[in-house]
Each structure stands twice: as C-alpha cells, then as structure tokens.
Design a protein around this nucleic acid. Structure first.
Lengths: 333, 333
DNA sequence: CTGAAAGCGCTTACAG
DNA sequence: CTGAAAGCGCTTACAG
C-alpha cells in the first residue's frame, strides 16, 4: 500500500505539518524536536515513503517536468539531444518528457496543449511550425519556451541556433581546399531559415574560392519522398553536369540517401568525389571517413537550453520579466 | 491567466459540479439543463479552458502517463520503438515519458523511483538489470510493468520477446545458402539471454547446413570499448582463421563498428564476405545492400506492449488479478 | 433530479 | 516556537 504524510502522522501521533517539515529538511528551521524528527525519518525510511509529486505539484504549481519536442526522435541528431537534455534536466531536478512531432504542425500543437494541461514547467522545442500562433498563445499564459535548431521569424522566445552560415562555409571551403571545383549543393526544405543559411555559407565559400555559383549544381530534394527524389535528381544532375566533382549535403539524412544511390549505381564515391555534410552518423564515418563533416555541439545546445528554461521558470515564479536570450553557437570538428 | 472550473462556475453563477459534469460530457446524464450546458460550453470555449490534469490525477489516482525506459535512446531500434509507442499510447489517451537508462542499473532504479513518485500508470521497459529487486518492489505496489527485448529470468512481469533463436537461424541459413561456410559470429554482452539465443540460432543453422562449429570463429566484443575491441579481435581472427568467409553480427551496432574496421583496413567487404545482421540501419543498407538482415517488428512490439500495459492498468483499477502475458514475436523480412 | 460538500496528498501562511 | 487549518483544482458520493 502507498502511504501518505497523513499515515505517518497518525501512526506517530504527530501533526502532518511536522512530518512535512521534517521530511523536506526544514525540521530544524521550524523547531521540530530533534527526537520527533528522528522518529519520523526512521519510520519514513522503514515504510519506504515516497512523496506524491502530483499532490506536491498541485500545491506548488510546479511539476518539475520539462517538455522536449523534436521533429523526429529517430534522427540521430535529435536523439542525441534528447539523451543529453534528459541528463542535464535531471541534474537540475527536472524530469524530461520527450515527444516527437513527426514534423506535423497539427501534432506539435496537440503536444503543446497536452503540456499545458499537464502543467509542464517549461518547453524546449525544435519547431516545425511556420505560423507559430499556437505556441504564442501558450507561451503567453503557460510556460517558458526555448527554441533550438529551427528559428522562427521574429521570435519572442529564447532561441539557440547554430551558426549555419559559418558551418556550411567551413565545410565547403575544406572541400575546395581538397581540390573540388564543381561542388553540388544538396538540400531539402529550403524554405527554412537554417537551410537558407547553409546555402549562404556554401555560396560564401565558393566566392572566397573564386568559383562561380552554378544553379544547376543546386539540388532540392523533397523530404517526404527523399528516396525517389534522390534517384531522379542525381541521375539528372550527373547528366547535366558531368563534371561535378563534389557533393555537399545540407544534412546527414540526405547523405545517407545519396550513398544508397551511389551504391546502387555502382559509383565508388570515395574515389570520384569530394564529400561534405552537416551532421554525420557513425555508419557514414565508416564508409566515407574522408568526408568533411561538421558536428553540432550537442552538449552545449543541451546545457544552454536547460539552463535558460530553468532560469525562465525561476523568473516566471518570482514574477520577474526576463529578456529572451538568442544564442548562436559554433559547430565543432 | 489560467482559469479553473471555479472561475467558470462563479462567472456563470452555477455550481462547480455542474461545470464539471457538463465539460466531461455527462451533463445529460446528470440532468443539467440544456440551456445551462450550452452557456457553460460556450464560455469554456471562449476562454479556451483546459482542465488541470494534475488536479484530475490527484483526484482520480490516474495520471494517464506511461513510462518507457530503454538502455539507449540513440540506438535506432530503441528510438523507433519510442516513436511508435508514443503514437500508440496517444491513441489510447496516454502520454509517454521516454527515458534512457544509459545501460546503468543505478540509473534505471532511479527512473523507476521517479515514475513511482510521479504516479505514472504503467511502465514498458527494456531492462538492463540482472537482480531485478527494485523493479519487483515497485511492481508489487505501484504499477504494471511490461518488459521487452530483454528477458529477465523467471519474470513475474508481462514480457514481449523476439524469437531470437529463429531470427538468428534464419539469417545464418541465408548466408550459408549464399555460399558461406566459415561464418564468424560477432557478439557482445553474451551473458544476456537474448544473446545466448542468437548464438543458439547460429549454431542450429550450422548444424542444419552440416557445418561444424568452430569456437575460433566466435568473437565476443566488449560493448563499452567496442571500437578498440573490434580492431583487436578482427585482426586476430583474420590471422587465426584466414579462411573466414562471412560475418554475422548479433546486433547492428557491431556491424557499424565492423564496417569501420573493414574500411580502415582497405577491405572490400561486399566482395570478400557474406554478411548478416540482427537489426540494421538505413546507412548500412546503402553500403552493404546484400547483407542478410532481419528486422525486429517494431510496430507489433509497440502495439502489444501498449495494449498489455493498458489492460493491466484497467484490471489493476478494478482490483482484478491479471495473469502476466509472455509473447514471443517473429522477426520480419 | 440537483447542488453543496468532502476529499485526493501535499505545502505553508497564520493564529495561538 | 508550534500545530491546526486552508487551499491547490478537480471528481463524485451523498444529502436534500
């Protein structure tokens, strides 16, 4: 049977308050007799008492739960983020509720509503949404929000972004330094700000290398049909630009698809092309170890996101206004 | 400002109960006037009322939250499971709390304690533990548990397992059918029951193929140091058994490591060896498309796990005893 | 048929 | 200094 403070109080013939104070470590402060405190602690230990966080949450208005929403938990970048944030949140006494929006705006809205009903203290989100109406509504009356990876235009939320322009420029420049001149830029969802930035970085590196941009080398793949699209667009690109000598993937997911294509077409990609990618995966490293890769700073993103959301919660509860932070982190490797 | 039933009741000059009944759809049953119901619903809509699940949970004793614990959320198998279970749980009106035990028994115990304090309704777990004392303690007094992937000895919990013997036999047999005779068996954590089963399947297929087992071809890699261990053990194996003509990986994670090794050593694995693996990954398929692979039935595992845990919760609340289920599912592909 | 009232398990302001 | 009592926001048994 689960036991409550009341059970302990009755059994020991003391007040519920005395038990509560003692168990929360404020026994001395509240001048509960040392003897009484000892009896309470011993008995609580004996019956393996665990406080009911639900009751606590109703009373205090804090659940000490943080929500995390990512577009796809099976994406290795997001699952690494989830793992790290769970650990960082725990370090500050919070649990993490990890949810996958499946890149659906409707699902994302639903998750935010659930978070609100569940009285979650704060949310970290890589949002797929464009209009951001739901989030705004919730933000204003429910909990602090930190966005990461995806930047919403004119965001009133805290945000953590990667310097996508520089990351992309860096990788492209490394490919040029290794001899590539006709580098294809393979992207997807190119309406997203971070994808626009990656393209800008690519163009910047070309310019710095004295290479003219050729729109024929830019390849925008439909994410929902990436397998088919990759085959069609790559076949066409190779026909149109037979002199292509490098491929730069705006995200590791596209690299995986491309490798599948190259393999099917019997192309030894390591021999023929310079390669570059934003993010990578263990398995890719095994097959294309010389690929130029930039790794997102998962540890920093996580640490900063949790720090900010927790600080916001604290300000929120003290009724203080806290100016949103907008961090831009550098990539590593 | 967040509003409560009380706010609505005061504003509309009706009882809190009337609001509660109406909003939970029992207005007619409780004979609340149709007119009153309409006013309540309209006003609730207007102020965008959302019930406080914490208060509801305290009252009803059900949080409608399920916990999921996996050893490593960045493992593609577990992240697929997590994604599917989140969707299946939602379909039954539950939220999922996804946690990663980082393969640590101590962390796993801590997560279970947190679940208990948070009054979670039920747990699905791929447990890393051996002694299972903590889980037993919690199971008896707190919530139903469904284990999957990892089988605990003499388990009193519901369990969902894969037929590892058959999965392994099937893959090995396919490699033999393709011409392999000297197949290395690459395993890790071989003390785990499912790893023992995979080895049994391998041996069974050899026997059926009339091939003698050679212990020199069995390679047990230390999971914590898998990169180093793979290099050392594979070098040694190739020296000791230069006639090895196939590699069967007891889990996809080892396959990734091995491919890294092969690449470093300049070995064209597709030309030289037959390959087989339990689980795979998109990226592996790109590089070794002819590898014999068996896929775990993620959808079935998820569906059955959620079904069982929800049924248990229902029985639990009705005070009924429910005999634990022990499912064994077949692999696919 | 209907609504006031008790209670879920906590925390903490407040009176003695 | 200490403990009884109110209250967090719901649900539902129970009295009228």
């Amino acid at each position: 049977m689960r036991s409550s403070l009341k059970d302990i109080a009755e059994r020991l013939n003391v007040s519920i308050a005395a038990v509560s104070w003692t168990l929360s470590g404020q026994g001395d402060k509240r001048r509960i007799g040392r003897e009484v405190q000892k009896r309470i602690m011993a008995y609580a230990e004996e019956i393996n008492y665990r406080p009911n966080y639900i009751a606590k949450g109703l009373q205090t208005g804090q659940t000490r739960i943080l929500g995390l929403i990512v577009p796809d938990i099976t994406d290795s970048f997001y699952s690494s983020i989830a793992r790290q944030m769970e650990i960082d949140a725990e370090g500050r006494g919070y649990s993490l509720m990890i949810c996958s929006s499946e890149a659906s705006q409707e699902r994302e809205d639903r998750l935010l509503s659930t978070f609100r009903s569940r009285q979650i203290d704060g949310v970290v989100i890589a949002s797929v949404e464009v209009s951001d109406s739901k989030m705004k509504e919730i933000f204003e009356e429910s909990f602090p929000i930190v966005t990461f990876d995806r930047l919403l235009p004119n965001t009133p939320y805290n945000s953590i972004m990667i310097d996508n322009v520089e990351a992309s420029r860096h990788v492209t420049a490394a490919m040029i330094a290794a001899g590539a001149r006709r580098i294809a830029f393979v992207t997807t969802n190119s309406h997203l700000q971070e994808m626009k930035d990656r393209r800008r970085g690519y163009e910047k590196a070309l310019k710095e290398g004295g290479i003219a941009l050729d729109e024929d080398l830019v390849c925008d793949i439909c994410f929902q049909e990436k397998e088919k699209a990759t085959f069609a667009l790559f076949d066409e690109m190779r026909r149109r630009c037979p002199d292509v000598d490098g491929f730069f993937f705006a995200t590791h997911v596209l690299a995986v698809e491309a490798f599948y294509y190259f393999h099917e077409r019997g192309i030894d990609v390591n021999e023929r092309y310079q390669l570059g990618s934003i993010h990578s995966e263990k398995a890719l490293k095994a097959f294309a170890p010389q690929m130029k890769v930039t790794r997102f700073p998962v540890e920093n993103i996580s640490r900063e996101a949790i720090r900010i959301v927790v600080e916001c919660i604290q300000s929120f509860h003290r009724g203080e206004y806290r100016k949103p932070e907008h961090l831009v982190l550098a990539c590593v490797d």
